[in-house]
Write a protein that binds this DNA or RNA. Sequence first.
DNA 1: AACTGTCCCTGCAAGC
DNA 2: TGCTTGCAGGGACAGT
Length: 278
Amino acid sequence: MPELPEVETVRRGLQRHLAGRRIVEVEVGRERVVRRTSREALIAGLTDTVVERADRRGKYLLLPLDSGDSMMIHLRMSGQVLLAAGGTERPAHTHVVMHLDDGNEAWFADPRTFGEVVVFDPDHIDNELPELNKLGVDPIAERFESSDLHAAIGRSKRALKPLLLDQHVVAGIGNIYADEILHDARLHPERAASSLDARRVERLHRSIVKILTSAISAGGSTLSDSQYVDLMGVGGSYQDEHAVYAREGLRCLTCGRGFVRRIVSGGRSTHYCPVCQR
DNA sequence: AACTGTCCCTGCAAGC
DNA sequence: TGCTTGCAGGGACAGT
């Protein structure tokens, strides 16, 4: 499941292989992935434009085009962006194909079609992509200090787990990294945010940066379903470093005394060690 | 403000 | 073996 580290890994691939390339032809299969506008709008918006660079905000990939518009790609649950030589057999559920001027093709594939691709006008974000301006601070791309986290948390009575998952607070953290971050910070996922003293907010801040940075270095997490791969189809390795996620019932690797417990918090499965997370 | 539930969708695993 | 059911999850949204 692509979260910030996976999306950042894809972004780096796009910056390397798509930036500077001209899109010469576009094919759109299932219309659901272009539901925000239309098949025609995506084809018209991308055809014969040059991708200037690849940016990211939270889990949103943003690719400014030389036309003045930008392409936004969101992978959601099962989306993949892949690069391949022209004519290569496409995987199932390939919904968008961009033919590039170097003979390669960029594909957007997504079995569950929660993901989307859209071309939008950055001058009209409020109309065309309103959620973008509502995103919280990006903990990697932007300046992110402990004081930012303190301000974002405020006097919120919410539990830490749903708070970390809220993209309006900090953008980019999903279910896997929320669990890993809270474990690293030795904080209980159901602890109220308002109960954190300055020292604990600082600890949480450090863990957010540390876990996300480590996961990016490892190329993200590829779970047993192999859903996430980078632009070249290669999986990440951070799943080998997971301390709690999907380790229900196993002994805690950190304290060696507790056993990882799984609960549902904020409607999401949540893993933590009841001994070292308080 | 904060919570719960619903929807979108497919693939996989468990249970019968 | 072959079916049905349930579950996984990001995020917007509605309802309480």
